[in-house]
């Protein structure tokens, strides 16, 4: 028999022993769970996703949010740093004057197109005001249309009742 024709019978038996070992170990734990025993052990390494969630690492980059000042207005000063660095060009900011003379500008509109965002986190890194963060822990933002993938400032500030984003402005910036 040529070498490459050989059937590794020893390895086959070893493999069967391994999978059978896992089967019996996990089965014992599952059956014990039925009787309310050995609850601290797990019979599987997977998570039953919608009901049971994986613990996130604190460094995980999830959906963006804009942080707020004490009075509820955005901390963002519309410096455009994030819009400039964004490799996906998916941040659209309209700057306006801030009523407080000590603060130069504020964003009138702040939209992020999540359908384009690559979740690099550069916007967070570059912000001088700690005004944008990616620590909401929100992972489910799938939508049925591209329009719905666009986050407006209200949504980013985590307020209720968000507005429609400004399409005309987006075309202009694109």
């Amino acid at each position: 028999m040529r070498r490459n024709h050989q059937i590794p019978l020893g390895a086959i038996v070893k493999g069967l022993a391994l999978t059978a070992g896992h089967f019996f170990r996990n089965m014992r734990i599952h059956v014990a769970h039925l009787f309310g025993r050995r609850l601290q052990e797990k019979g599987m390494v997977t998570f039953q996703y919608p009901e049971e969630r994986r613990p996130f690492s604190p460094r995980l980059r999830t959906r963006h949010r804009l942080t707020m000042r004490a009075d509820g207005s955005p901390r963002c000063v519309a410096c455009m740093m994030c819009e400039t660095i964004c490799p996906a060009n998916c941040i659209y900011i309209t700057a306006g004057e801030h009523p407080d003379p000590h603060i130069e500008k504020q964003p009138l509109k702040f939209d992020i197109d999540l359908g384009v965002c690559v979740f690099c986190g550069f916007c967070v890194e570059v912000c001088p005001e700690d005004a944008i963060r990616m620590d909401t822990g929100i992972l489910e933002f799938a939508a049925y249309s591209r329009q719905e993938m666009i986050l407006t400032m209200d949504k980013l500030l985590m307020k209720e009742g968000a507005q429609e984003p400004d399409r005309a402005l987006m075309k202009e910036n694109a």
Partner: peptide, 10 residues
């Protein structure tokens, strides 16, 4: 089910 339990799944 058996394949799942063998592979540490549910």
């Amino acid at each position: 089910k058996q394949s799942a339990v063998m592979q540490d799944r549910i």
